[in-house]
Design a protein around this nucleic acid. Structure first.
Ligand code: ZN
Ligand code: ZN
Ligand code: ZN
Ligand code: ZN
Lengths: 137, 137
DNA sequence: TTACATATGTAATAGTATAACATTAGAGGT
DNA sequence: ACCTCTAATGTTATACTATTACATATGTAA
């Protein structure tokens, strides 16, 4: 086995392509771009962009990964309860992305939405920051 | 003058390309894509994508327009005080976009950010909704 | 005027995503 | 097992979005 990633035993209901894309994102933990994923998974049998995009679309739909719109990248979901809602911090200097786990923030957003009588189906929140290491330098 | 848009008298400090792009967005009021803008402004002398992207970049930087990341589109800013912060509702069915003007919402977001000790430089909020006309049908 | 920064013009290319169509694999019912 | 239907795959081509590179022009301030 020359695989560079470890096949997890979960995610059994996924198809082959969906699983290898998800595994890559899971093992990476940071946002990856579609064509990077394609290059990385050539050896696993993914040959065309469409194979990657179809897997990504499905995984987004299942809530297992998120798309970070402003950087055209995909990242594993860090939470269990996002549904299709997303909230990230993005460092403006180094590009580092973190999913916001803070339950209070998410609750606050929900309250906020209720208070403003917005009937939303989902949301995408991108907070641009200077991350700790970038703030020092 | 066969121009399809009216030249506003404001925005005098902008350059020619920046002004005609801004005028188009102003008169449209809805999100436009870069290559649509290019096609629309061929008669005004814009010949290449780069001319459009450069004008758009500058206008975003000046806070006069916003980019809506999830649809690769640009829209005139509806407020006076956005700085580089953005908040939109996007209809999931018809794609209609509205900038959120509600000051309370923006204040709430600021509070929210403070409460969570996020030191942000700016934010981009995308709320997906079903707009009124889509809800009826 | 000179110097410098900013904006333009133009061509080429890089990066992101989908259309179209033929084929295959799985799930459920008979 | 067989049929049927849906979802997923494989493949090629193409559409859409954005930037690099470099030459030229324009505006502003010393
Ligand atoms: Zn998540
Ligand atoms: Zn950073
Ligand atoms: Zn605005
Ligand atoms: Zn609608």
């Amino acid at each position: 086995m020359s695989s560079t990633y470890t096949h997890s035993k979960k995610n059994q209901s996924l198809t082959k392509n969906q699983r290898i894309v998800l595994d890559l994102l899971q093992n990476s933990g940071e946002p990856l771009k579609a064509y990077f994923i394609l290059d990385s998974l050539k050896k696993e049998g993914l040959n065309s962009p469409l194979q990657v995009y179809r897997a990504l679309d499905k995984l987004v739909e299942l809530g297992k990964i998120h798309k970070i719109e402003s950087i055209n990248s995909f990242i594993i979901c860090n939470n269990s309860n996002c549904a299709s809602n997303t909230a990230f911090t993005i460092c403006e200097r180094c590009g580092k992305v973190k999913e916001i786990k803070n339950k209070y923030l998410k609750d606050s957003v929900s309250d906020l939405v209720k208070d403003n009588q917005l009937e939303i189906t989902r949301y995408n929140l991108e907070f641009y920051v200077l991350c700790k290491s970038c703030k020092i330098n």
